[in-house]
């Protein structure tokens, strides 16, 4: 009896082992090969912490259109020059802000947060109408020392949007966000 059962057990053990191996291989492949956004290179080592925590500036001081437009917008270099006309510190990137301004060139900030082409998102609807805080999506920018090189909004997919809309009683009609 025992001899006749052995091959069956071996086959079962082999199958289980193969399945475990395949699962492990899939997990490793997913972790290492999944599509991830590449970090971008920002032209200036801008520190949100220095500006928000140190100088007590509000998000909307620079991202001015956040309450009135779909886009939050970057500030023009002349806005930076209101303070940086005179040296404010000793960071090596600070004179470069003045160089951009003298050349009459905008600082070529690289946008990191992007939505798919068939999604519509309005900052104004969320900030002005729904009275949401910027940090609810963008996290604690007041602690961000390094410039933003990767999307700070983690796991932003349709499920995230819809869960929040459901929670707050906002419409989940497809046409509300899709275009």
């Amino acid at each position: 009896m025992s001899t006749s059962r052995k091959p069956g057990r071996r086959v079962a053990a082999f199958c289980v082992g193969a399945l475990l191996f395949a699962a492990a291989a899939c997990a490793v492949a997913w972790v290492s090969l999944r599509p991830r956004p590449h970090p971008v290179v920002q032209p200036i080592a801008f520190s949100h912490r220095v500006h928000v925590s140190g100088e007590e500036m509000e998000c909307a001081d620079c991202h001015k259109r956040v309450g009135e437009s779909p886009h939050a917008t970057f500030p023009p270099v002349k806005y930076c020059m209101q303070c940086h006309e005179e040296p404010q510190g000793e960071h090596p990137d600070e004179p470069r802000v003045r160089e951009y301004a003298q050349r009459g060139q905008e600082i070529p900030w690289v946008r990191v947060n992007r939505l798919p082409g068939h999604v519509y998102f309005s900052h104004a609807s969320h900030v002005r109408d729904a009275k949401m805080e910027c940090a609810e999506c963008h996290g604690a920018m007041e602690d961000a020392e390094a410039p933003v090189t990767l999307p700070q909004i983690g796991h932003l997919d349709m499920g995230t949007c819809m869960a929040c809309h459901r929670e707050r009683g906002a419409s989940n009609d497809c046409l509300r966000c899709h275009k």
Partner: peptide, 10 residues
Amino acid sequence: NEEGIVAQMW
């Protein structure tokens, strides 16, 4: 949709 539009999600 809720406003009577026959919508198409591409």
